[in-house]
Design a protein around this nucleic acid. Structure first.
Lengths: 100, 100
DNA sequence: TAGACAGGCAAGCAGTCACTTGCCTATAGT
DNA sequence: ACTATAGGCAAGTGACTGCTTGCCTGTCTA
């Protein structure tokens, strides 16, 4: 493995990839075609299948997407744990919660 | 203001800008020249002054850096609160802490 | 076994980005 | 007033990136 740090932020830099993460957040374990159709229907993103495939590869390199083979299907799942590095690197000030 | 979401992730995509955030985390309220010298000395990043200035502009557009004028100096401070949007958007699974 | 279906590889193109260079403005000190 | 200092603006360039297109591999079903 390389320096995943760079891959992580590069992966997050694209709006389409963030939409994919949104989609996988709502329903995990989707195939490439499912993600394609859901992107076009719900996020109004019209793009070729290969484009989405390349985005998924970038997300996988960043560790944000884990895949597993199931026959001829390839299921894509979400893994948000790499995001923890961000808030650990630059601590976010705590907001006093409003318990009114 | 526009959609700051895009600016935020674009700002984080560059390693030099992340180094700047690291520097401001350690010591806030620095001028452009201070950031330049600290980058070259501590992060081994040799770059023109204008390059760093442009990076700071990107960080400011993302809301990660707040500036204030002080005579002929412009002091740059850190604001990590925009990062909260990230972990709110894609919740990070809680790690059971080890109290052994 | 033939065809449909899910996915992958690689080349090419256009737009974006990071960085430099040159010049300009404004404040501070002598 | 002159000069040094801190910073800003704008054009140009090389590299990277996102997307397309065309073709290929592997799996399932009639």
């Amino acid at each position: 493995m390389k320096i995943v740090t760079d891959d992580l932020f590069k992966a997050l830099a694209d709006p389409t990839r963030r939409a994919i993460l949104d989609e996988l957040t709502e329903q995990s374990e989707q195939t490439l075609f499912e993600i394609c159709t859901r992107l076009s229907v719900r996020h109004d993103v019209s793009m070729s299948r290969q484009a989405v495939s390349q985005h998924l590869a970038v997300l996988e390199a960043a560790g944000l997407v884990r895949t597993r083979r199931e026959g001829r299907y390839k299921l894509h799942g979400l893994d948000t744990s790499p995001l923890r590095r961000i808030v650990e690197r630059w601590p976010i000030p705590h907001i006093p919660e409003d318990h009114s």
